[in-house]
Write a protein that binds this DNA or RNA. Structure first.
Length: 235
DNA sequence: GGAATTCCCCGTCAGAGGTT
DNA sequence: AACCTCTGACGGGGAATTCC
């Protein structure tokens, strides 16, 4: 399997996992998933993530054969194009629904923070459900205190004079370069954070899958027991 | 042992959506 | 409108594993 193929495979699994959890919880595939991710899109793209513009274009093209007379539903396309909520949002929603699920802390102001950088702390976060139906946590999972970028820029990033004071083309070029470097640096950090959150999110999903599987098994067993008790004996 | 493949991480870009 | 944040997508590099 190529690198690219492998990446797609991982993403497919991740999305399937999410859907599994959703369907286990309310017994149906969420409308958003059902609507925004048609089966034929999955077949065409091999991905379960939000399609790229090119993919959307392909979908629109092939859909034409099926609904050539009808106008493409604008809202449907908006939904396809729309972004899924951030991992932070998802996890925080989860944590409000399910006690024990760690919250990803919102960015704190610098006054609150003690460390200038992102601090990862190991706290117990793996989720398990007790016999009473409560969620509990064991094991280590990193949680994050995301801090606003410090005012102290990293070495090599120099604050330039205000744009109004720039005159020569050289100064303008330097300013542009500086801005680009700053942007790249910020994006680099953002990507790191994003990946960390994603990992946390995946771990959380995995834990929930485990919990729900156990719960499901128990319920099936209970059902069987009740059936045995209440069904009339034939002999 | 070396080539091929897989896995994991990273940096960058593009683009959606939020904020100022 | 400009700027910022977040995240999917892409591709590269290195370590680990598998295959011959």
């Amino acid at each position: 399997m190529s690198k690219c193929g492998r990446k797609k495979y991982i993403k497919t699994n991740l999305r399937q996992m999410t859907m599994e959890i959703d369907s286990q919880q309310d017994g149906s595939i969420p409308d958003s998933v059902a609507e925004s991710e048609s089966a034929h899109m999955q077949m065409q793209t091999g991905q379960n993530s939000i399609p790229t513009l090119a993919q959307v274009a392909t979908i629109a093209e092939t859909d034409e054969s099926a609904e050539s007379e009808s106008v493409i539903d604008f809202h449907k396309h908006r939904e396809i194009l729309s972004r899924r909520p951030s991992y932070r949002k998802i996890l925080n929603e989860l944590s409000s629904d399910v006690p024990g699920v760690p919250k990803i802390e919102e960015e704190k102001s610098e006054e609150e923070g003690t460390s200038p950088n992102i601090a990862a702390m190991a706290v117990p976060t793996s989720i398990y459900q007790t016999s009473t139906g409560q969620y509990t946590t064991t094991g280590d999972m990193p949680t994050y205190q995301i801090r606003a970028p410090t005012t102290a820029l990293p070495q090599g990033v120099v604050m330039a004079a205000s744009p109004g004071s720039l005159h020569s083309p050289q100064q303008l070029a330097e300013e542009a370069t500086r801005k680009r470097e700053l942007r790249l640096m910020k994006n680099r950090e953002a990507a790191k954070e994003c990946r960390r959150r994603k990992k946390e999110y995946v771990k959380c999903l995995e834990s929930r899958v485990a919990v729900l599987e156990v719960q499901n098994k128990k319920l099936i067993e209970e059902l069987e027991t009740l059936k045995d008790i209440y069904s009339p004996k034939t002999d």
